[in-house]
Structure formats: structure tokens, C-alpha cells
Computed example of a mutant assay.
Amino acid sequence: MLTDAIKTYQQRVDQVLSQHLHNLDDAAPTLKAAMTHGALLGGKRIRPFLVYSVGNLLNVPITTLDNLAAAIECVHAYSLIHDDLPAMDDDCLRRGQPTVHIAFDEASAILAGDALQTLAFDIISTPIDGLSPKQQLAIVKSLAKASGYQGMCGGQAIDLSATNQRIELARLTELHNKKTGALISCAVEMALIAADASESDYAALMGYAHHVGLAFQVQDDILDIIASTEELGKPQGSDEQSNKSTFPQLLGLEGAKQTSQQLVDDALSELTKLPYNSQLIADFARYIIVRRI
């Protein structure tokens, strides 16, 4: 069921993204091609999955969720394009394909990231059937906060400053709650806003999202050690080669695995507070720590 749902939502958001990119004029064809390469390179579409699955749980029409899912994936795609740049993580592979600055050039990659970020806010600031202006403004604010200084960009800055240093576990956790966790939490929050959810539902599902977001990153750190380059779609061992602090480095591999399992258990505990059948997102939490990609 989970595999089918991930595939269905992946295909759906890819269709929405493709349409938005197709609708751009051809004034800057290289930029448009670089944006398309970065946005449609593949991937499980984890953040759109959470938008769709939580929205469905709360009875939000799927057509209302489409642009929310597309927007958050645009932001995620932009972040990956910029993360791969020589000034950041300097990676040449992403999902088994050349990164944007390799497939095109650095200037095109920078512009493609910038343009995908602004496309995201264009998408969610355009009127959406089923959402009030107040809801859309709240969604815009949620995505902006998760993407910027208080979220993803702030986390990346901490990550860069921590390279070649050994940092404390609390600082590493803060780093990844921002760099990875903020956008995952935002995916859930966007669906909650669209549903006009109750305070109790909001608290439980945001608690779930917080634990899942950190578990996702811990598992990424583990996979960087135990998975192959072919499985990862990017160079294996890149964290170690870049001398980054990771959860396995601080906790040991087994300690990191125990931490990821505890985070999933905590996420599942939050779901027991809901008066709905939350099996799909419960299965997703379990999937986080058994995935190989």
C-alpha cells in the first residue's frame, strides 16, 4: 500500500511540476532546461507525499493539494541544486544523474535554483480552489520560514561552518532539524493549514513530522556509510570525504540506528493521539529507516 501510494503521488506531483515548467515561456531556454533537469531528476518525492497523505487523512481534496506539493518540491529541488555546487557540497551526481552544474554550468545551476525557489512562491500565491486568502498566506509564511534563515538555509550555514570540526550532538541535531527537518515539517503543516485542522490534530501531526524529519536525516547519514553509490545515486561516503559531523560519527553506527528507531517510535506514538486511521503515514515512518535510497 505504501509503495503504491508513494508511486501514485510521485507521478501526480511530477505531472503538476511538468505543467508549471512547460507553462514558462522560452525567453531563456537554457535556464528553463536547467530548472527542468533539477526538478524532474527523479526521487521519491517525500515532501509531496506528506502533503498529499496528510491532506487526504484530513479530507482535503487532492486538487487543492496539488500546488502545495509542487511548490514544496520546487523548494527542495532548488536546495539540492545549490547544495551540489562546488562552493557547497561539490557533488557531481544526484539520483544517478549529473548534477545541474555538471549537466549545464555553475551560473545556470545558481539561476535554476533561484528560479525554482521563486516559482514555488508564484505557485502558492496564485488563488487555489478550496483555500481562503488567509490560509494561503499562512501556507506562504510556513514555506518561507522553513526555507530560509530559520530553517533550511540556516541549517545549511551551520553545516558549512561545522565542516572540518567535531560538533556536539545537540548542535548536530539543531543543524538537521533546520536543514532537513524544517521542510519535512512544513509539508505536514501546509496540509494542516489547508484542512483548517484542530489544535489537537495540529499538535500530534507536527510532533510526528518533527520526529520523522530527524529520523530521515539520521538514516541518510547511515546510508552514506552502508549503501553503495549505485543505491544512493550519489557518491558513497561523501560525508566522510567532506569531513562532516554525522550521527554515526558521534554515536557510532549502532547508536545511530538505535536513535533512528527511537525517533520512529516517537513519531508513531504521536499518531496514536489521532481519531483517524493513520496507517499510511505510520507505514511511511517505518519505511524511513529501512529504505536504501
Rank of each mutant, 00 (worst) to 15 (best):
I226M: 12
N243R: 15
G151D: 06
V54E: 09
A87C: 09
G96V: 10
A146K: 03
G155V: 04
L172Q: 01
G96I: 13
D4T: 15
K178F: 09
Q279T: 14
G213D: 12
V100Y: 03
P29A: 00
D122F: 15
V140P: 04
S269F: 06
D159V: 07
Q15Y: 09
D90M: 02
A227S: 09
Q241V: 13
L280T: 04
G96M: 13
L250W: 06
R286L: 14
A256Q: 01
E199T: 15
P127Y: 06
V140D: 04
K273E: 15
R45H: 11
I158N: 01
A112R: 00
D14S: 09
A70I: 03
A77S: 15
S132Y: 14
S125R: 05
R292L: 11
A256S: 04
S132R: 02
H37F: 07
A187E: 05
N56T: 13
A187C: 05
K257F: 05
A27S: 13
A69P: 06
A144Y: 13
S147Q: 08
N277I: 09
K145M: 12
S79P: 09
T99Y: 08
N59V: 07
N177F: 10
M1T: 11
A70K: 00
A203K: 04
L41N: 12
I225E: 12
I158D: 06
S132A: 11
T36F: 04
D14C: 01
D266F: 15
G252E: 14
N23I: 10
A285Q: 07
Y202N: 13
V51A: 11
K179A: 01
A267K: 02
L31M: 12
L131V: 04
A170Y: 15
A27R: 09
E231L: 00
L131K: 00
T246F: 03
I123S: 02
E73F: 04
E270D: 15
A170C: 06
I288K: 00
E106K: 07
A103Y: 08
S260V: 11
